[in-house]
């Protein structure tokens, strides 16, 4: 056992990095106490509200709604699959827990994206911002996920908010990275064309870069949601509720049956969220077709050309 002022080496002195970070964190907590409280209560309000709304309809009705969403963003096969996934969760009696987890993931992922996408845009536009943001993202992602539960607990005490905070930190980085990559990958000649015709920076961003980066950004959104879901289970340790709490309970009771029920429910939820977000990114679903409503390819007559110009196409 090494004492506080000793290290394994006789030469290298002990520096209390952890203690200093803790002191810094405590200073932060004290200084922004009211802000933290406000954020905590707001997030709690939103996530509780969402969980309650999800709990209003009967399990089967919500299943149908989720299946309808799957059909809209992808196809009827996924809709059918969705029914199967949800029926599994209902039948192992994890439905309410799954809804809580879904609410936690939704809020955490939404906040993560609200922060991550603008940060990613900033990193893509500014080399300096990129150099600062990258190591921070590395830190957030490589730090063992459970460690983030400690400050979460200290700031927001036991409950869903702490879980959301820890989940948020863990799930944020891919959102930033994918957004930066997506925008950097947009064909430079197309961006140049935008400049050549006198577009403002905002026009370049919203009319050229973001639409062309959308597919890759959606891959980032998918990653954020998947990471949020995996972290949501860890969040059970800080009493975030939902499937995570069930898993923690199963561990403490060594209850393998409960562990599988809750664990497999997480898997079902993961499959659903993954396929749906991938479907949005793929843009092949009914919804995408509705949004892209237009007349089909080349027609030669003058009349149709005029007709087309008059109706235009509403994808702008």
């Amino acid at each position: 056992m090494i004492r506080a002022d000793e290290t394994e080496s006789t030469i290298v002195p002990r520096i209390e990095v952890g203690e200093r970070l803790e002191a810094g964190f405590e200073w932060f907590e004290d200084t922004f106490d009211s802000a933290i409280n406000w954020v905590g209560s707001t997030v709690a309000y939103i996530s509780d509200g969402l969980a309650e709304i999800l709990a209003i309809p009967d399990a089967l009705i919500l299943t149908v709604i989720l299946a309808a969403i799957a059909w809209l963003v992808r196809n009827w096969k996924l809709a059918l699959g969705t029914v199967g996934l949800m029926l599994f969760i209902i039948t192992v009696d994890q439905w309410n827990e799954a809804l809580e987890t879904l609410a936690l993931v939704a809020v955490a992922a939404a906040i993560a994206l609200i922060i991550a996408i603008p940060l990613g845009v900033l990193a893509a536009k500014s080399q300096i911002a990129s150099r600062i943001i990258r190591p921070v993202m590395d830190l957030m992602q490589t730090m063992p996920a459970l460690v983030w539960l400690i400050p979460a607990l200290a700031m927001f005490s036991l409950g869903m908010t702490a879980g959301i905070f820890a989940t948020l930190i863990f799930a944020l980085p891919p959102g930033v990275r994918f957004t930066e990559l997506a925008i950097r990958q947009v064909d430079a000649e197309v961006v140049e064309a935008g400049h050549a015709f006198g577009s403002t920076p905002a026009q370049i961003l919203f009319r050229v870069q973001l639409p062309l980066a959308a597919k890759t950004i959606m891959a980032g959104v998918n990653q954020v949601i998947m990471l949020a879901l995996s972290m949501a289970v860890f969040a059970g340790f800080v009493g975030a509720g939902g499937l995570g709490t069930e898993v923690v309970r199963a561990i403490s009771q060594l209850n393998l049956a409960l562990g599988f029920d809750a664990g497999l429910s997480v898997v079902m939820l993961a499959i659903y969220l993954d396929r749906v977000t991938a479907g949005i990114g793929g843009g092949e679903g009914v919804l995408a077709k509705l949004l892209r409503r237009r007349k089909s390819a080349p027609v030669q007559t003058e009349e149709t050309a005029e007709d087309k110009a008059a109706t235009g196409s509403p994808t702008t």
Binding site: D187, E192, A193, F197, G198, S313
Partner: peptide, 21 residues
């Protein structure tokens, strides 16, 4: 650039998410 100069590019530089029109 808006009022005086237009440009045509080697690899066309069309915006794939927009229609020809």
């Amino acid at each position: 650039r808006r009022e005086k100069i237009a440009m045509v590019f080697q690899h066309f530089a069309l915006m794939p998410h927009r229609t020809v029109g």
